[in-house]
Amino acid sequence: MIFLSKSKSRTVHHYHDESGDDGEASTSLTVWTKSLVYSCSGFTVIGSDGGLAYRVDNYTGRPDQTILMDGSGNPIFTICRRKKPMFCVRKNNMRLRQTKVDDVVAYVYCGILENRCMYVVEGSFTHRSCKILDESRRVVAEIKKKEAMPKGASFGLEVFHLIIKPGFHCKFAMAIVLLLDQMYSY
């Protein structure tokens, strides 16, 4: 079980480029599972305008907490295995028992004591092909492989798209990506 706590946040940049079904623009971010800081693991998230949207720099390998920052380095969310969370994410352990539960990868709950599931992640994070659905089963965000240009270099699993539908917060979607990475990359 991994928790998500709110950090003292300042400005968060949102990048829009795709049209949604209701005419509003979806947000498309390119996520790179590398830090821009030398000899450091983390994430670099680029908006459609080419600007740095979010970043995570991890100097210790597997820390007790991970901090999602905006492009300027201001903290937005702290991801940890501690108490008093805003949200709690649980891995679907039923997959380990060979029981199919609608391809559910993880469940997102509000707080630690509340049993109401707010979001469900379905698909395969390890293959960078999954969707985040709300309580009404509406897709609020998607993780997709970034396709290379014809005869271009392959991006592999290190670079992928995070597409956020109108009405869902970009920073929260990115925090869920970090949680999924912690659950499925170790």
Rank of each mutant, 00 (worst) to 15 (best):
I164R: 01
A53I: 12
I176G: 01
L4K: 02
L133Y: 02
S7I: 08
E122W: 00
R10G: 12
E18W: 10
C130L: 06
G152E: 08
D57C: 14
L52A: 03
E122F: 00
I79A: 04
C110K: 08
D49P: 02
M69R: 14
R116P: 00
P150D: 07
T44W: 05
V45C: 13
V105N: 02
D21P: 10
D21A: 13
V105D: 01
R138N: 11
G71F: 09
A175D: 04
S39T: 12
V120R: 06
G73A: 06
R82W: 06
Y184N: 07
W32A: 10
K91W: 05
K171V: 04
A106F: 02
E147D: 12
M94W: 14
N115F: 06
R55I: 09
K144T: 08
V104I: 13
K91F: 01
C88I: 11
P63R: 10
D64S: 12
Y109M: 09
A53Y: 05
L162R: 02
D103H: 10
D49R: 10
M149D: 08
V56N: 08
R90M: 08
A53F: 04
L179F: 06
K165A: 08
L96G: 14
T66L: 14
K145G: 05
K145R: 15
G47T: 11
N58M: 14
F77E: 06
T126S: 10
K83N: 09
V101Q: 07
I176Y: 01
K6F: 09
F87N: 01
A53E: 10
A53G: 03
K8D: 14
G123P: 06
G71W: 12
D57W: 08
L157W: 01
I79P: 04
A53L: 09
R95I: 05
T30A: 07
S136G: 03
F155I: 03
E114Q: 07
G152P: 04
F87Q: 03
I46L: 11
I132M: 02
I176L: 09
K83W: 10
K144I: 02
Q98L: 10
A53C: 13
Y38Q: 15
I76Y: 06
R97G: 01
P150I: 14
K34Q: 15
C80W: 11
S26Q: 15
H14E: 15
V120L: 04
A141R: 01
V101K: 09
M149Q: 10
G123C: 06
A148T: 05
Y15R: 07
V108W: 01
Y59P: 03
Y186M: 09
M174D: 06
M149A: 12
L68E: 07
T30H: 08
H16V: 07
V121Y: 00
C170D: 15
K83H: 13
C130A: 04
D22P: 03
V120C: 00
C117V: 15
A173M: 05
S185V: 08
L162F: 04
Y107D: 05
